[in-house]
Each structure stands twice: as structure tokens, then as C-alpha cells.
Design a protein around this nucleic acid. Structure first.
Lengths: 203, 203, 203, 203
DNA sequence: TATGAATGAGCTTTCATTCAT
DNA sequence: AATGAATGAAAGCTCATTCAT
């Protein structure tokens, strides 16, 4: 296994550290508003978060929120637009090592987003189309990559298409809801173990 | 695999049909309020549902909602208390057929709840402790059963404990979030295929 | 000073003891409702006391309150009607001892009412005519008796009418608001001392 | 006795006239809200006054009341905080004329407050701590001044401490509840007559 | 760009009162 | 007489949004 300094999934701390380096310490008003909204939406949910509290946490006057984001929903939309990126690119895969490929996928989700943004993505997907769409793209991309990794790793006709699809979808489900499950039920899942399990299943 | 008369998961229609038989067509006011809340909470979420709309849909005056449920949150709590039951009982398992046992588990979740209540359970778990606790119990129970089924099916020292745990947790994750994933991303997962996959993985 | 078993003003405890003797231990529903209302009105005020809490404290169903008292205000009116009696009778006075006569008046207010009812009488007088009227009668009666006592005690033309009137009114004010002042400001006033003071003033 | 330009107690009209001079005719919204609340609380009592009526009388939208005063009770608290001042300062006293000193005290209560605010202070003291505390301070201050005036006026060991205390407390009681008694029972008390009475009593 | 007062619709909740049983 | 479900007007309060400065 490739030595990895990072823990399998970037922690909240690591994330904010990496962003701090690129941004001015305080950020401009707009950034601070989005920062505040990110924290509050992740914590209590979009509906339960008044714009006034966003402004308060951001340290800006209430009116300024509506200067940058005409409607409250625009804060959420901008957050998802600007702070979650589904990376839909071709990946090079090493043939032969399915488990390793899946593990690598787990460690580097094709999603550029903070843990808070991941919560928001999952939690608000029900009610807001643009969020749902982004989540759908992420799911599709994970499945695509998992399928690709498994196809490459497993020579030829061995695994039939249906099984491969189920394996990829299962892995995607685990990756997507791993954090939620942990947060909600306290039950940790080790993606590496699942990767190995699934690779095994297709032999 | 045994052909099943039931569809893998009971549909919303089947559920309400089965309950209708046992209850008077209209039900008393309290029941109608809970019915309405179930529908609306599942549809738009707890926060976005005004009590007035619950009353309206239930065909009762606004005040009556608060006669039965002093606070709005009590409607949700009662709903979860009374309409979701996690079945925590011993199950007999047939040795040898891991995939079949998992499939059966998928077909009969140890949860007595309508599809709407399942949505509510998953969606509102973030914000309300009692809901989260119920979801946690469900997750634990599914894992327990899945582990039991796999242990029994797989003779002796073959699968080590960690792999077995990962397999059980993976299956639970898929079962729990299958409906959500489908609803949110449009991606169907066939629990039977996952069952077979996982059983395979442990050989 | 005449030996007195009673403390200058009957305390709350003494009052309820004396009433208990005359009434069945629990009382009928109507009585229990009035008991509860007396306690609650004295504690939090009429406006701030919901009828539901009266019923609850009385241990009767909510509907029964309205069976006996068609409107909420009727509870207050009945309370004042039945549980405060201004004793408007002739009193024999001993000539010569003005201070003693006033002290006796202080010790036996021409008012038959529990401490709680006295609070209610003073507190709700602003807003409810029937209460105000009762309080007015009490004030008038105290002044009448004080004037009578002072007239008798003080021979002839010595004190002019105006001074006598002021003395009587002052004594009435002290008696009426003594409890309130104590409750609100924590400042105790000794009616006996005031009696002596006023008697002195007219010599 | 010095003829006084002021009437013994400032009337409501005189009060508002004197304030009008210093303030713009309409005042800002917050002021108008407090003005309206002052009038309504004095008239019908705090509990019986809906915030909507305050807004209506103030000519501002309902929401603005809560912009300035997050809770209804904050209107009352602000009113008492800002519009009643207990003047706790040293007073110069002229030796020898006890009655005059008390009369002067009656004419200039150590309280800066409109007649309406005085009603509120006395009426709402029961239920709200901050109001009660203010009333307590006023009572203490009146007693302190009355005692001071009497001590100075009466040479040496003549009046013992207890009698002096009773006299001061009596005078305070009369001053405090004079208006209430008049309003409730229709019985006027002339503070000047009481002042003379009490001064007399200590000779 | 920045500010916070202003606005009013709509929310949860309270409550006196009615009424069928 | 006794009961508690039913009713709806009105209360306190929230909040997204507007707007003058």
C-alpha cells in the first residue's frame, strides 16, 4: 500500500489548514459570509439557519448578506457551486490491483469539498435541486471510477457486468454515506476494508 | 434463489393498503394528524412543514394539533416512537447460504415502518436526538443480523473478524441508504446482487 | 394591651387552618376550583393565570370550571363576592384610648379574607370593577372606624375635622398597603407603632 | 409655607408638556413605541396589552417592536430602566421645620417619572423583578429622606428611634400609595396634612 | 459598497370557550 | 353533574427581504 501521510479522508482540521494557506487570514466580507453559512448549514441545516445568524457569525451587517446573495437560497447555491467540485476526469489505473485502486479512490474522493460541505451536500440534497444534482454527479463519478478500476483489475470475462455494477454501486454507497453513518449512528466503516472485500468478491 | 411474492422492499402503496385494513377508514383526529405529518415531513422535511398545513391536510382545526402535541417537535417524536419499530429479536438462520440470508434480511428489514417513515428517519436524524437514536438502533440491528448470517454461513476460521465486520457494515450501509440514493441520485441498487457479492467476498 | 392569641394580622397558615375546620377536607369541585384560583390569582395575577391551570390545580377537568363559572372573570367575581366580606357594623369604642382602639382595628381588619384574597383584592382592583368596589368599601369602612375611634378618644373641639380625617385616612392607607409594601419592598411596618403615632399626633 | 408654582404632584399633562419641549414632536420609532407602551401599560396593565396594540398606537409595524425589544417584557424593563429614576442624593434640610420638610418631600418625590410610569411601577411590581427592585429603591429613599428630615427637625433625644422609623415608614406608605388609593377608592389624601400630622406626632 | 432600520407575512403557541356525550 | 375533545381568534415572536442613506 502506498504510504500516506493523510488519513484516508481529510479531516476537518487538515482541510481548513490547507485552505488558510491560500486565503487572506480574514477574507473579504463575501468569503466570511460563505464561511459562516458553511458552518451553520452543516451544523443545524439550511432551514433552521436564519440569515441574521450567518451575518452575525460572519461579523457583517445583516444587509450585506443580501447585497451579495439576493435570496437566502443563493447562499446555499453559491456554497455548493463554489465549494464543491466534482472532479470528472480520466484517471490512470494500475491493472491488477483492484483493492488498491478502490482504496486510492476512497482516499481521494473525486470531490473537492470540506467535511462541512460534504454534510451540506448530503443533508440538503432532498430539498434543493442544485444540491441534489451535484450529489448525483458525485455518485455517478464514483461509480464510474470504481467500475473502471475493477474492470481494469479483473481480466476479461470473469466478472459479469451486473456483478461489476453492483460492486461499484456498493462501494459508492459506502463512500458517500460513510461519514453520515458515523455521525448519526457512531458506527465507523473502514473504506480500505470494504475495498479489499469488494475486490475479493470479484475474483 | 427463492422467488419472493413480496417485492424486495414494500412499496408505499402496499404499506398503506396493509394498514388500512386494520384501521377505520378515517381514523380519529390524532391519527389523521399523524398521517398528515408523516406525509408532509417525508415530502418537504420537518422544518419546512408548518403545523397549519398539517392541520389542513388532516382536516382538523389548527388548535387541535397542539391539543394532542404540545410542541411541533412532539409530532415528530410521536411519529418516530409510534410508527417506527426496530425489531430486535433473535433470528433463525440457515447455515450455509449466506447470500440467501442477506437477501432475506434485505427483503425484511428489522424495521416496521412505512416508506414515508423511513424517509423521515433518515432525513431528520441530524437534528433530533430521538430520531437519531432510532436510526442508530436500526443500523446496529442490521449489522448484528448480517454478521450473524455470515458467521453461520461461513464455517469456522475462514473469514477473520475484521472482514466479517466490514462485510456486515457494508451491507447495512447499502440497505439503509439504498432508498435515499435512489431518490436523490436516481441510481438503483439491487440488494440481492449486493448480498451475493458480499457472500462471495467471504469465501 | 389586651392579650391576643392571634398575631396582629392573621398569617396565611392560621387562615387556612381556621377554614379547614369548617370545611370538608377536600371540598366539592366548585370549592376546589375557587381554592385553586385563589392561590394562582394571588401568585401570578388574574391575567397570567389560564383556566386550564386552575382546573389542573383543582384536580378537575377543564370543562367543569366553565360549568360553574361561565366566563373566566366569573371566577374572580365569585372569589371576591364569597371570600371577601367587608364588615360594616357598628363597633363599640372605649373612650379615651385612641391608640388602643386603632391597634385593635389593625388587629381585626373589618375584612374577612385570607391573605391570598387580600393580595387579589389589591392587585386586581385596577382592572375589574367589582373588585375595585369591594376595596373601596373596605377603605371607607376602615376610615369610618378609625375616625370613630379617634373622635371618641379625643374630647371635643381639640382636633379639628380636617386633621382627624387626615389621621384616619393615613391609618387606613397604612393598613391597606402594609402587606403589599412588605411583599414588594421587604419593608415591614408595625401597625401598633403607627397607631400610637397617630394617636399622639392628635393630642 | 412657600407657595409653590408646581402643584403638589405633577399632573400627567404637566409632565408630558415638560418632556415635549425637549424632544422632537414625533420622536423616533423606538421612542414612540415606549410612549405607546407607557400609556397602554398604565391603562390596562402589562399582561392585558398586546404588542400589536402598542405598535398600532405607536404607528409602527408590529415587527419593529421586536426589532427594538426582542421580548415583550423588554419593553417594560426598558420603560422602567429609562423612564423612572430614583434620585438618591443628599438633601439639605432646614432644621426646625419637620412638617415643611415632609411637605417638600411630598411635592418633590425623589422619583423622576411620569404619572403613567408611577402607575406602572406600582402595578407591575408584583410580577417583574426589575420593576419591584426599582419600587423598593424608591421606598427606601423616601424613608431615608423622611427620617433625615424628622431627625434634623426634632432636637436630640426627644423622639426615640422606633417612633421615628414608624413615622418615616408611614409617610412613605402614604406617598407611595396615595395615587393608587385615589384611583382605586376615590379617596383623596392630602400629603401636606399628613406631613403636619406626623410632625405633630413627634413633638 | 455598506448599514441597520423598517416591513409584514407567516410561524408556533396559547387560551377562553363550546359542545357532544 | 362531568368530561375532554374540539374550535378558532389572537397572542408573541421570527425572519426573509427591502430600502433609504
Amino acid at each position: 500500500m502506498v504510504r500516506s501521510v493523510d488519513s484516508p479522508l481529510q479531516t476537518a482540521k487538515a482541510w481548513s489548514r490547507s485552505r488558510r494557506r491560500k486565503q487572506p487570514p480574514d477574507g473579504d466580507a463575501r468569503t466570511r459570509i460563505l464561511d459562516a453559512a458553511e458552518e451553520l448549514f452543516a451544523g443545524g441545516g439550511y432551514e433552521a439557519t436564519p440569515t441574521a445568524r450567518i451575518a452575525e457569525l460572519a461579523g457583517v451587517p445583516k444587509g450585506l448578506v443580501f447585497h451579495y446573495f439576493p435570496r437566502k437560497i443563493d447562499v446555499l447555491i453559491s456554497l455548493v457551486d463554489e465549494r464543491t467540485v466534482v472532479i470528472e476526469e480520466e484517471v490512470e489505473a494500475v491493472p491488477g490491483d483492484a483493492a488498491g485502486a478502490l482504496s486510492r479512490l476512497a482516499r481521494r474522493l473525486p470531490l473537492h469539498a470540506s467535511p462541512a460541505m460534504r454534510r451540506i451536500l448530503f443533508r440538503e440534497a432532498d430539498t434543493h435541486l442544485s444540491v441534489r444534482e451535484r450529489l448525483g454527479r458525485l455518485n455517478t463519478e464514483i461509480i464510474r471510477r470504481a467500475r473502471f478500476a475493477l474492470e481494469l483489475a479483473l481480466p476479461g470475462g470473469r466478472g459479469d457486468a451486473a456483478r461489476l455494477e453492483a460492486a461499484a454501486a456498493t462501494f459508492a454507497a459506502v463512500l458517500l454515506y460513510q461519514e453520515s453513518i458515523c455521525l448519526l449512528t457512531g458506527h465507523h466503516i473502514d473504506p480500505d476494508a470494504v475495498a479489499e472485500l469488494i475486490a475479493n468478491a470479484l475474483h
